[in-house]
Protein backbone atom coordinates (compact mmCIF):
# COMPACT_ATOMS: atom_id res chain seq x y z
CA UNK A 1 0.00 0.00 0.00
CA UNK A 2 1.39 3.34 -0.98
CA UNK A 3 0.06 6.86 -0.47
CA UNK A 4 1.29 9.83 -2.43
CA UNK A 5 0.42 13.32 -1.30
CA UNK A 6 1.17 16.38 -3.37
CA UNK A 7 1.44 19.79 -1.71
CA UNK A 8 1.32 22.75 -4.06
CA UNK A 9 1.09 26.52 -3.82
CA UNK A 10 3.07 29.75 -3.87
CA UNK A 11 6.61 29.92 -2.50
CA UNK A 12 6.37 31.37 1.02
CA UNK A 13 3.14 29.59 1.96
CA UNK A 14 5.06 26.94 3.87
CA UNK A 15 4.31 24.18 1.37
CA UNK A 16 7.62 22.34 1.76
CA UNK A 17 7.40 22.59 5.54
CA UNK A 18 4.00 20.92 5.85
CA UNK A 19 5.16 18.20 3.50
CA UNK A 20 8.14 17.61 5.76
CA UNK A 21 5.97 17.49 8.90
CA UNK A 22 3.73 14.89 7.29
CA UNK A 23 6.72 12.81 6.14
CA UNK A 24 8.16 12.98 9.65
CA UNK A 25 4.85 11.87 11.23
CA UNK A 26 4.58 8.97 8.78
CA UNK A 27 8.15 7.90 9.54
CA UNK A 28 7.48 8.01 13.29
CA UNK A 29 4.53 5.68 12.71
CA UNK A 30 6.85 3.09 11.18
CA UNK A 31 6.34 3.78 7.49
CA UNK A 32 8.83 4.11 4.68
CA UNK A 33 8.76 7.69 3.43
CA UNK A 34 10.28 9.97 0.85
CA UNK A 35 9.89 13.74 0.58
CA UNK A 36 10.58 15.02 -2.90
CA UNK A 37 10.70 18.77 -3.54
CA UNK A 38 10.39 20.45 -6.85
CA UNK A 39 13.52 22.48 -6.86
CA UNK A 40 14.41 25.16 -9.31
CA UNK A 41 15.40 28.81 -9.56
CA UNK A 42 12.40 29.75 -7.47
CA UNK A 43 11.64 32.62 -5.13
CA UNK A 44 8.98 33.92 -2.81
CA UNK A 45 5.78 34.18 -4.79
CA UNK A 46 6.87 31.59 -7.37
CA UNK A 47 5.45 28.11 -7.43
CA UNK A 48 6.47 25.57 -4.81
CA UNK A 49 5.44 22.00 -4.61
CA UNK A 50 6.57 18.78 -3.06
CA UNK A 51 5.42 15.19 -2.95
CA UNK A 52 5.40 12.94 0.08
CA UNK A 53 5.34 9.20 -0.57
CA UNK A 54 4.34 6.91 2.30
CA UNK A 55 4.52 3.15 1.99
CA UNK A 56 4.80 -0.10 3.89
CA UNK A 57 7.85 -1.16 1.87
CA UNK A 58 10.84 0.72 0.45
CA UNK A 59 9.73 3.56 -1.81
CA UNK A 60 10.46 2.87 -5.47
CA UNK A 61 10.03 5.74 -7.87
CA UNK A 62 10.20 9.14 -6.21
CA UNK A 63 8.63 10.52 -9.39
CA UNK A 64 4.85 10.48 -9.03
CA UNK A 65 2.63 11.30 -11.99
CA UNK A 66 -0.68 10.52 -10.31
CA UNK A 67 -0.75 11.30 -6.60
CA UNK A 68 -3.49 9.87 -4.42
CA UNK A 69 -4.14 13.21 -2.69
CA UNK A 70 -3.60 16.90 -3.40
CA UNK A 71 -3.36 19.91 -1.12
CA UNK A 72 -3.84 22.91 -3.41
CA UNK A 73 -2.99 26.20 -1.74
CA UNK A 74 -3.43 28.39 -4.83
CA UNK A 75 -5.46 28.38 -8.02
CA UNK A 76 -2.68 27.54 -10.55
CA UNK A 77 -1.79 24.47 -8.47
CA UNK A 78 -5.37 23.26 -8.37
CA UNK A 79 -5.84 23.73 -12.10
CA UNK A 80 -2.53 22.09 -12.91
CA UNK A 81 -2.66 19.06 -10.63
CA UNK A 82 -6.35 18.28 -9.91
CA UNK A 83 -6.74 16.24 -13.13
CA UNK A 84 -3.82 13.99 -12.05
CA UNK A 85 -5.25 12.90 -8.69
CA UNK A 86 -6.28 9.25 -8.46
CA UNK A 87 -10.02 8.62 -8.11
CA UNK A 88 -11.08 8.38 -4.48
CA UNK A 89 -8.35 10.70 -3.22
CA UNK A 90 -8.73 13.89 -1.21
CA UNK A 91 -8.32 17.25 -2.92
CA UNK A 92 -8.00 20.03 -0.37
CA UNK A 93 -8.90 23.39 -1.85
CA UNK A 94 -7.72 26.53 -0.07
CA UNK A 95 -10.88 28.58 -0.63
CA UNK A 96 -9.26 31.71 0.81
CA UNK A 97 -7.40 32.01 -2.47
CA UNK A 98 -9.23 29.68 -4.84
CA UNK A 99 -12.72 30.65 -6.02
CA UNK A 100 -13.30 27.53 -8.14
CA UNK A 101 -13.88 23.78 -7.68
CA UNK A 102 -11.62 20.96 -8.79
CA UNK A 103 -14.07 19.91 -11.49
CA UNK A 104 -13.78 16.32 -10.28
CA UNK A 105 -16.72 14.22 -9.11
CA UNK A 106 -14.71 11.10 -8.27
CA UNK A 107 -12.67 12.58 -5.43
CA UNK A 108 -13.32 13.79 -1.89
CA UNK A 109 -13.20 17.56 -2.22
CA UNK A 110 -12.31 19.27 1.05
CA UNK A 111 -12.78 23.03 1.05
CA UNK A 112 -10.92 24.92 3.74
CA UNK A 113 -10.61 28.69 4.10
CA UNK A 114 -7.12 28.29 5.51
CA UNK A 115 -6.23 31.98 5.68
CA UNK A 116 -9.47 33.02 7.39
CA UNK A 117 -9.18 30.20 9.91
CA UNK A 118 -5.54 31.00 10.59
CA UNK A 119 -6.46 34.64 11.24
CA UNK A 120 -9.09 33.46 13.72
CA UNK A 121 -6.58 31.36 15.64
CA UNK A 122 -4.13 34.22 15.75
CA UNK A 123 -1.76 34.44 12.78
CA UNK A 124 -2.22 34.18 9.05
CA UNK A 125 1.10 32.35 8.80
CA UNK A 126 -0.45 29.24 10.36
CA UNK A 127 -2.63 28.74 7.25
CA UNK A 128 -0.38 25.91 6.09
CA UNK A 129 -0.79 24.05 9.39
CA UNK A 130 -4.58 24.48 9.17
CA UNK A 131 -4.48 22.89 5.72
CA UNK A 132 -2.22 20.03 6.82
CA UNK A 133 -4.35 19.26 9.85
CA UNK A 134 -7.62 19.33 7.90
CA UNK A 135 -6.08 17.02 5.31
CA UNK A 136 -4.80 14.55 7.89
CA UNK A 137 -8.12 14.56 9.74
CA UNK A 138 -9.96 13.77 6.52
CA UNK A 139 -7.55 11.30 4.89
CA UNK A 140 -6.21 9.53 7.97
CA UNK A 141 -2.77 9.01 6.35
CA UNK A 142 -1.28 9.53 9.84
CA UNK A 143 -2.93 9.85 13.24
CA UNK A 144 -3.84 13.25 14.66
CA UNK A 145 -1.70 12.47 17.72
CA UNK A 146 1.25 11.70 15.48
CA UNK A 147 0.68 14.94 13.62
CA UNK A 148 0.47 17.01 16.82
CA UNK A 149 3.70 15.47 18.06
CA UNK A 150 5.55 16.31 14.85
CA UNK A 151 4.21 19.88 14.70
CA UNK A 152 5.58 20.32 18.22
CA UNK A 153 8.95 18.87 17.23
CA UNK A 154 9.09 21.13 14.17
CA UNK A 155 8.61 24.25 16.28
CA UNK A 156 10.66 23.03 19.25
CA UNK A 157 13.32 25.64 18.53
CA UNK A 158 10.68 28.39 18.57
CA UNK A 159 8.49 27.22 21.48
CA UNK A 160 6.55 30.49 21.47
CA UNK A 161 4.92 29.36 18.24
CA UNK A 162 3.74 25.98 19.53
CA UNK A 163 0.43 27.11 21.13
CA UNK A 164 -0.55 29.00 17.96
CA UNK A 165 0.20 26.00 15.76
CA UNK A 166 -1.63 23.63 18.10
CA UNK A 167 -4.67 25.88 17.81
CA UNK A 168 -4.27 25.74 14.04
CA UNK A 169 -4.19 21.92 14.20
CA UNK A 170 -7.39 21.90 16.29
CA UNK A 171 -9.12 24.31 13.92
CA UNK A 172 -8.09 22.28 10.87
CA UNK A 173 -9.36 19.07 12.43
CA UNK A 174 -12.67 20.74 13.28
CA UNK A 175 -13.27 22.09 9.81
CA UNK A 176 -12.53 18.71 8.21
CA UNK A 177 -15.16 17.10 10.40
CA UNK A 178 -17.72 19.85 9.87
CA UNK A 179 -17.58 19.66 6.10
CA UNK A 180 -17.49 15.87 5.77
Amino acid sequence: MQNEIMFAGFGGQGILLIGKILAHAAMEEGNEVAWIPSYGPEMRGGTAYCTVVIGDRPIGSPIIKNPRHLIAMNRPSLEKFAPDVKPGGVILINTSLIPVDSGRTDVDELKVATVDIAKEVGNVRAANIVALSAFVARSGVVTMDGLRHCVEVEFSKKPKLIPLNMKAVDAGEKVAKKTS
Binding site: K20, A23, M27, E32, V33, A34, W35, I36, P37, Y39, I59, P62
Partner: peptide, 10 residues
Protein backbone atom coordinates in the same frame (compact mmCIF):
# COMPACT_ATOMS: atom_id res chain seq x y z
CA UNK B 1 21.85 12.73 -9.27
CA UNK B 2 20.13 15.92 -8.11
CA UNK B 3 17.27 14.04 -6.48
CA UNK B 4 19.61 12.10 -4.20
CA UNK B 5 20.77 15.46 -2.87
CA UNK B 6 17.36 17.13 -2.68
CA UNK B 7 15.18 14.28 -1.45
CA UNK B 8 14.45 13.70 2.25
CA UNK B 9 14.35 10.11 3.47
CA UNK B 10 14.77 8.40 6.82
Amino acid sequence: DGLIGQMMEP
